[in-house]
Write a protein that binds this DNA or RNA. Structure first.
Length: 895
RNA sequence: GGGCGCGUAGCUCAGUGGUAGAGCACUCGCUUCACACGCGAGGGGUCGCAGGUUCAAACCCUGCCGCGCCCA
């Protein structure tokens, strides 16, 4: 199959991906091989591919494809996450806009039917997009967190944890989202600084009480005046003499008229404000703790708001404010306090305000009954697993983040007041008893015949189910062969931003239910930002769509860019120019393959390198092996940038720039054959060897690039010949043996480069062919010039001659490995220019020489430095001073 | 306030103790029969600042300056 002149990534990608998928190439049967397992961080079913996904999944695919080539039984578990809040919001919005129907109008069951319909129709967007990227996941076992099997796992975990006492019901403050009507986790709360106010209120002392200074009231200040309606105490510090006389007495809560006690608590800081603080245990996390210390049970705490954050009719709360929204109530309370003459002053201040990251509204600390996981108990072994090295973070610096959070972990509220999600397997009896069981029948059995039960309306936090992903996707709680074989996974690749949300929780649940942590390594990458370093966001309008980049440059180019820019967790500033550059690289590879093909170079027939007698062929075999070893090292160290860079440099700067150029003269034999000229058998043999080696080397290049650029490499793999298998299932380069290298080709490259430099500096026309001679050629040099004469003629436009009678003023002199080459220009040479050129080179060599000499002479270097360093310095000194000498000699000859 | 990280060529970034690197951009030359998405040759850095350790510091330590992120 001839390789087309035009490289068309879109056509290739559209054709190859279905081919791989249909062939089962993503999940080859390799029962005897060592497993290699990655579980995908499941994207939200509502999601569409952004550059963060593109990065995350490219890195995973590089690992999976690499290890598949290495012969491992590679499995990349894929699927999506049901994303409770996000999905419910999407479907609600859709129903509202298309049918004008509200969720509550439909009822739970009907609404859920709509969600499933939506999931079937629209839930596949991101998985289709992952295919565009080339992700070689095992789609045959695609999972969804709401599937029956996975749901069974979720239920079992809940029931088991409850039985162990690690899940319990509690009345505490939660972060309540009044817009969404559900509790959300601490992690979903975003604290923003906003301009607010600080109101100072006077609370009159009851029963004629007086402070030390004679005042008849206590001043408290608040940023949330409306909550005063539910105040239950005023706290002062026990050491604060100003208030000693009133501790234990009451104040009369204004507006409401309730008596509330003055209590002591360390939370009150005498240095701050008046030193007295109002305590509203039902609406502030700090106050909740103060209330508990003061002996107020959670059940006795006053709850001022309903689920929409509207004021409820607590005893004493004026009817006028009942039903008011919290912000309206704030204005009302301030006005009322002012009217009563109890507003001492108001000051502006910046306040920390909690916002729901989904809804964007201010979060209300709200008192509710919820289910909690005893995260502290589960965290212990999860911390230990990382401390002992059972799981390691790469880069290791993220371990600190992990420890910091794990060691200060709070009870994890796992119930959500949503409809879409895993319904909590708990049943309530009318008398308040709660039965947790796998299903209704089991609950009924616990409760006994005739007890009326109703199931908890709430669902579980989505992260509760995501935490089970590494084993739930493999069939747990069934003891499946997949589970036995692929748990724990080898590596998790994810953004550092979900270490808390997800990684920590998988660690806890994996250890609790499987006995071992879910992966050996956690690789954390950074965020993808725009070219200016700004976080991409819809509101800024700087979002770059990976699919647009794929359309424009090809998936391979985007993948290569992301891989090359991934240097262990640092944020990536994505510049489109970079993608363009790697598109060029793909084109370069394409053209190199075309060149090979047109010269009769075809698919290799062996995985081991064919025998090579000629220096250039031996050299490229060695370079391939060296490169493959470097790539192995890069993967072992999770240095994706090194992988890309090493492959790029080898392909472009070694294989294309030198190897292909150096073998061009070999193919001249073809033309001579065609024109009927005589050709020696040795030349034919050279040609055949070169074809075999070049074909082999190109195959190895395709293998080595495949993890990063799967499409173009697979295409070329087949274009170059009939293959027994696809490249995706090929074998990695054999790196055990490498031919000895005597530096011959390095010398040749140096010589050609030097001649080219001189030509350019001396402004020799590109077409002019030069002659050169050597002052004192030894046998080895003569032999080398004979061997590579054609290549030198081809690449440097220069031919060696034995005549040494060139006039000095018509030539330039270069030094390569200690030998002087005299390049002859005829009379056109600019003597001054040549003098300047040599002078510059001489000065550079002398500067190096003097530096090295100085170092070797300096106190202590020879005695204290490592022997290798001294050895190298001596060798470098010898080389550089010899070079300086020869250049000086050449200058002297110029006169 | 606590923690983490960053500051290297015009730009984006590698380099973690032994004479400063890559890609892009820039300059000069080239319709060389794979490729102008190309070929060849170049210019460009007191490695944020100041001390210290060391025979030797971009790299280790301390302080400072500037920038970013996370937590409270």
């Amino acid at each position: 199959m001839t390789i087309d002149k035009i490289f068309d990534p879109a056509e290739i990608e559209a054709r190859l991906y279905p081919r791989w998928e249909a062939a089962g190439a993503f999940r080859p049967a390799r029962p005897d091989a060592q497993p290699f397992t990655i579980v995908i961080p499941p994207p939200n079913v509502t999601g569409s591919l952004h550059l963060g996904h593109a990065l995350d999944n490219t890195l995973q695919d590089v690992l999976i494809r690499y290890h598949r080539l290495k012969g491992r039984d590679a499995l990349w578990v894929v699927g999506t996450d049901h994303a409770g809040i996000a999905t419910q919001m999407v479907v609600e919005r859709l129903l509202d806009s298309t049918q004008g129907v509200k969720r509550t109008d439909l009822g739970r069951d009907k609404f859920l039917e709509h969600v499933w319909d939506w999931k079937r129709e629209s839930g596949g967007t991101i998985t289709r997009q992952l295919r565009r990227l080339g992700a070689s996941c095992d789609w045959s076992n695609e999972r969804f967190t709401m599937d029956a099997g996975f749901s069974a796992a979720v239920t079992k975990v809940f029931v088991d944890l409850h039985a162990k006492g690690l899940i319990y019901r509690d009345k505490r403050l939660v972060n309540w989202d009044p817009k969404l009507g559900t509790a959300i986790s601490d992690l979903e709360v975003e604290t923003r600084e906003v301009a607010g106010q600080f109101w100072h209120f006077r609370y009159p002392l009851a029963d004629g009480g007086r402070l030390a200074d004679g005042r008849d009231h206590i001043v408290v200040a608040t940023t949330r005046p409306e909550t005063m309606l539910a105040d239950m105490a005023v706290a002062v510090n026990a050491a604060d003499a100003r208030y000693a006389s009133v501790v234990g007495t009451d104040v009369l809560l204004p507006i409401v008229g309730r008596r509330i006690p003055v209590i002591t608590d360390d939370h009150a800081d005498p240095e701050l404000g008046s030193g007295a603080v109002k305590i509203t245990p039902g609406h502030d996390f700090n106050d909740f703790e103060v209330g508990r210390r003061a002996g107020i049970e959670a059940s006795a705490m006053l709850n001022l708001f309903d689920a929409q954050a509207r004021v409820v009719a607590l005893p004493g709360v004026p009817e006028a404010v009942v039903g008011m929204d919290r912000f309206e109530a704030r204005k009302w309370v301030v006005a009322e306090m002012d009217r009563l003459g109890l507003l001492e002053r108001t000051e502006d201040r910046v306040v920390q305000m909690p916002y729901g990251d989904r809804s964007g509204v201010v979060i209300e600390p709200w008192l509710t009954d919820q289910w909690y996981v005893d995260a502290k108990t589960l965290a212990g072994p999860a911390i230990e697993a990382v401390r002992s090295g059972g799981t390691r973070f790469v880069p290791a610096t993220w371990e600190k983040t992990y420890f910091n959070w794990m060691e200060n972990i709070q009870p994890w509220c796992v119930s959500r007041q949503l409809w879409w999600g895993h319904r909590i397997p708990a049943w309530f009896a009318d008398d308040g008893r709660i039965f947790v069981a796998e299903d209704a029948a089991a609950a009924q059995a616990q409760a006994g015949e005739g007890v009326a039960l109703r199931q908890d309306e709430d669902v579980l936090d989505t992260w509760f189910s995501s935490a089970l992903w590494p084993f739930g996707t493999l069939g747990w709680p069934e003891a499946t062969p997949e589970l036995a074989r692929h748990y724990p996974g080898d590596v998790l690749v994810t953004g550092f931003d979900i270490i808390f949300f997800w990684v920590a929780r998988m660690m806890m649940q994996g250890i609790e239910f499987m006995g071992t942590p879910p992966f050996a390594t956690v690789y954390c990458h950074g965020l993808v930002r725009d070219a200016k370093g700004q976080k991409m966001s819809k509101s800024k309008g700087n979002v770059v769509d990976p699919l647009v980049l794929i359309d424009k440059y090809g998936a391979d180019a985007l993948r290569f860019t992301l891989t090359a820019m991934e240097s262990q967790g640092r944020d990536i500033k994505l510049d489109e120019k970079r993608v363009e550059g790697y598109r060029n690289f793909a084109t370069k590879l394409w053209n190199a393959a075309r060149f090979c093909q047109s010269n009769g170079i075809a698919a290799g027939t062996t995985i081991d390198a064919p025998p090579a007698a000629h220096a250039v062929n031996r050299w490229i075999v060695g370079e391939v092996v060296r490169t493959a070893r470097a790539l192995d090292a890069a993967i072992a160290a999770f240095r994706f940038d090194d992988y890309a860079e090493t492959a790029y440099q080898f392909v472009w700067s070694r294989f294309c720039d030198w190897y292909l150029e150096l073998i061009k003269p070999v193919f001249a034999v073809n033309q001579r054959l065609a024109s009927g000229e005589e050709v020696f058998p040795a030349e034919i043999a050279h040609l055949e060897e070169t074809r075999a080696i070049a074909g082999w080397a190109l195959d190895q290049i395709l293998v080595m690039l495949h993890p990063v650029m799967p499409f173009v490499t697979e295409e070329l793999w087949h274009k170059l010949g009939d293959r027994p298998y696809d490249l995706i299932l090929a074998e990695w380069v054999k790196t055990e043996n490498s031919p000895a290298d005597d530096g011959e080709v390095d010398w040749l490259i140096k010589l050609i480069s030097e001649i080219r430099s001189v030509r350019s500096e001396m402004n020799i026309a590109p077409k002019t062919t030069l002659a050169f001679h050597i002052e004192n050629p030894d046998e080895k040099l003569t032999e080398r010039l004979r061997t590579h004469g054609q290549a030198i003629g081809w690449l440097a436009r220069a031919n060696a001659i034995s005549d040494k009678s060139a006039p000095i003023n018509g030539s330039a002199q270069i030094v390569v490995d200690g030998t002087i080459f005299v390049l002859r220009f005829g009379l056109e040479i600019d003597l001054a220019a040549e003098q300047a050129r040599l002078e510059k080179n001489a000065v550079a060599a002398e500067k190096d020489r003097d530096g090295l000499a100085g170092r070797l002479a300096s106190q202590g270097f020879v005695e204290r430095a490592k022997p290798e360093a001294v050895e190298k310095a001596r060798a470098d000194l010898a080389a550089r001073s010899a070079e300086a000498e020869r250049i000086r000699a050449a200058l002297a000859r110029l006169g």
